[in-house]
Design a protein around this nucleic acid. Sequence first.
DNA 1: ATGGCTGTTATCCG
DNA 2: CCGGATAACAGCCA
Length: 289
Amino acid sequence: MPELPEVEILARYLGPVLSGRVIQQAEVLYPRSIRPWTPKRWISNLVGCRILSVERRAKFLVFRLHSPSSNPGSETLLLGHLGMTGRMYVQSLKDPLPKHTMLWWDLRQDRFVYEDVRRFGRMSFDTEALSELGPEPLSKEFPFQIFQEKLRGSKQSIKIRLLDQSLLAGLGNIYASEALHIAGISPFRSSQSVAGDDSSLRALVQSIRSVLQKAIRVGERLPLEWNPGARSNGVFYYGTQGVESDPSVLERFQVYDRFGLPCRRCRTPIQRAVQGQRSTFYCPQCQSA
DNA sequence: ATGGCTGTTATCCG
DNA sequence: CCGGATAACAGCCA
């Protein structure tokens, strides 16, 4: 379930454990998981690099690297994207490589692993994708006017528009449904109609921000769980040890995956619909317009 | 056991 | 250009 909040939590974990480390050696087990070069060239570009930091931009992890062959101060960026099932972590050299390892890096004392069951994720030295991203929804000065203008031009449903990473970056299928529910907006409403309704639009921006912020707060309280065999029980790879009964964990979704269950606000059964081949969950009562 | 579902997005086509 | 459909893939669940 890596959307913005999950990637944020991951970046906060990876940053401190990887910063300062030098990549001694690397192996790519699934060449299609890397871009834009062959494994040989990709690895030669990587080996010897010192990791300066790991940050998040939208749903991307941005690894800032310094290569030994280049000038001091010059940096190379490596992008990581988790797709739907990507996991990245540092493990002991003694532990076996997980079944769906796409690639790994030898960090001398331990190893960095990228595993990905469905293999939709990527690690890429091509940073073009960054230039096509819209603003960070959690940035201090969110450009409301631009957001409004971009929504104006489209007859598409608002739910589908919210998944467009060039509109606003980091929202995925779960939090799009969640934000619309909080804002009381029907997922079927057209983008342009929402854009023309100032109070709805403000509510939407606010709900997007609050839903993401809240998910980060929940995530940062949960222990990360890397055991290869560990079931993620739908909570990404957060562990839930010790917080099984925590309401903020149990009730972290208002509508997502709650088909037929009562809306937490009005008790009306939650509905499921398909938009753009993806599931949308909503409350027909709270989100009638 | 088979078929339908799954958190993403690049790319193709009309 | 826009928007819809498809493909990339494996596992889980009814």
